[in-house]
Computed example of a mutant assay.
Amino acid sequence: MTQPKLLAIAGSTRRDSFNQRLLNIAAEAAGDAGAAVTMINLRDFNLPLYDEDLEASAFPAEADALRAQFIAHDGFLIASPEYNGSVSGVLKNAIDWASRPRPGETMVALPAFRGKVAGIMSASLSPFGGLRGLAHLRQILGTIQTVVATEQVAVPFANKAFDGPSLVDPMPKQLIPVMVARVAFLAQALRPDGLAAA
């Protein structure tokens, strides 16, 4: 049985981002759960804001490269800050570009997302841990045919929840391995050969 391949993405490009720290912890746990994890940084993709005219005239090479990363993986680990009650703009823009069809594909093909699984998480300074943003992210991913694991991780008071790269808040610390194990299992099961190989 081949390892499920997970793409790990933070919705914050800030240096020393709490969400990047959270993602690093989840990615390590996913490796322990038997998944092969690829970590990317959205800062490395020079994506313009999504624009249909730009898409029609010259689909950005960076958007194609990002889309190829999504296509090449069985599932995703996504950590996003909450911006004004929703997901970050940089994450939404990345998802918008990756969801667009390319020549020969129908509008509903969605090869970067359809039939894949995501584990979502958020670290926030607020007492709610980014829950409103997670609700929006779950809706967005569901709309583009991605299965979102029932478990999710919300880290409130993020400025106090970490000790350097380590998470010290006990509740999300205990939930992370549960969530990533679910994502790894579903990513394997949802592959075309997954049920036969499981």
Rank of each mutant, 00 (worst) to 15 (best):
L137G: 08
P127V: 08
V90D: 08
A123V: 05
P177L: 07
P172W: 04
E82A: 12
N41S: 15
F76Q: 01
R102C: 13
R182D: 15
R67C: 06
M107W: 11
P60F: 08
A109D: 14
L125I: 14
A36I: 03
P48W: 08
S86G: 15
P172Y: 06
L110V: 02
F59C: 11
A197C: 10
R138E: 13
I120P: 00
G133N: 04
V148H: 01
D44H: 08
A58I: 01
E105G: 12
A118L: 05
L186T: 06
A118Q: 02
T13L: 13
S122G: 06
A198C: 13
V155P: 06
V90K: 03
F70D: 00
L23H: 01
S122A: 14
N84H: 09
L22W: 03
M171N: 11
S124W: 00
P111G: 07
D169Y: 06
A197R: 09
R102W: 06
R21Y: 05
E151L: 14
I176V: 15
G104D: 12
D51A: 13
F128T: 11
T146P: 01
V153Y: 00
L54G: 11
A36T: 09
A149M: 06
I78M: 05
A35Q: 04
V178Y: 07
F76S: 00
F70V: 00
T13S: 14
D64G: 11
S12Y: 04
T146W: 00
T2D: 13
V147A: 12
F113W: 05
F18V: 04
S99H: 03
G129S: 09
V183I: 14
L49E: 12
I9N: 03
A187N: 06
A154W: 00
R100H: 10
D51N: 15
N159Y: 07
A68S: 14
V87A: 04
V178F: 08
S124K: 01
N84M: 10
L137Y: 04
P111W: 02
L167D: 05
L137T: 04
V37S: 13
Q174E: 15
N46Q: 14
I9V: 15
N159T: 09
A94I: 00
G130D: 00
L131G: 07
L22G: 06
G129I: 01
T143H: 13
K173E: 15
R114M: 07
A72L: 09
S124L: 05
F128A: 14
L110W: 00
G133S: 08
T2F: 07
L66K: 01
A10R: 00
V117F: 03
P111K: 04
A61C: 08
R100L: 09
G129D: 05
S122D: 03
R132G: 08
L66N: 02
V155F: 08
E82Q: 12
Q145L: 12
L23M: 13
L195G: 11
G119L: 01
D51T: 05
I144V: 15
L141Y: 02
A135M: 12
R14T: 10
Y83I: 10
A118H: 01
P48F: 09
R114P: 03
A26S: 12
